[in-house]
Amino acid sequence: MSTYYAGLFADIGILFLGAMSVYIILATGQLSLGNAGFMGIGAYVASFLTVEMQWPLTAALIAAALAAAAIGIVVGFPALRLKGIYLAIATLGFGEMVRSFLLNFDRMGGSGGFHGMKHVSLEYIWLWGGGIFVLIVLLERSRLWLEMRAVHDDETAANLVGLNTTATKVGAFGFGAAVAAVSGGLFAHHHVYIEPGNFGFERSIDFVLAVILGGSTVGAGAVVGAGLLVLLPEWLRFLADWRLAAFGVLLVLVLLTRRQGILDRPLLDKLSLRRARA
């Protein structure tokens, strides 16, 4: 593989993890527009641990994920009293808050950014991507997932049958935050430089877009979405100044023809059946 495609696949892996963080939260019917904030927390915590404390990367990533999960849960409690668009706006506010904090946090470089991380291999990024993907596929086959879907479909009904909807929602928020933090830690160690601008609103939107484009009802959708979001603008380079416009048009076309995203359960079943028959 050329170094160029290796770079792109690393970006896909990082975006895929970010998209997964949104997917998990979305599975309980909550839309988070602030996951770049958790990604930023993960990036800064992991980088601090590897650069200043000389921790090994894997341990730093786990610590960053735990820290972000704790913050996710703390933020999740008050935030999840809000629903739908109000929650989306509150999470957006959280994301901006994290970015502004990092901008003024001189201990980690402030607006000047933070250096010193060691570059990680593409394989390492995808080891995390694959591991978390397997974890989510297993989760999708568990009873817990059914509870999450129940909360997604009708929260009141789920409550009435005795499910602890608050725990489910806050738990999903914490798990999503942890996955976003891993994505951030890997981002920091792939690009070996981070600055608060990396974790702005646009990044959160990329996560949501990858999920919606790839298919928001199956975990594998995020892989497809992340792949397209990274590769399409590159493949459209022959259009020069028009490439981003063409990219937008393609996104609209895909969503017009497949509202549920490119991958959904029937398509996934069809693909796996065909493979099984062959």
């Binding site: 050329s2 160029y4 770079g7 792109l8 690009h191 603008p233 380079r237 020069a240 490439r243 981003l244």
Partner: peptide
Amino acid sequence: ILDDAAKPAQAANNMRKLAGD
């Protein structure tokens, strides 16, 4: 000439494309 849209990640990938491919 490659466009990086002023995005750091795209600039880094551009560098990989120019030097590698």
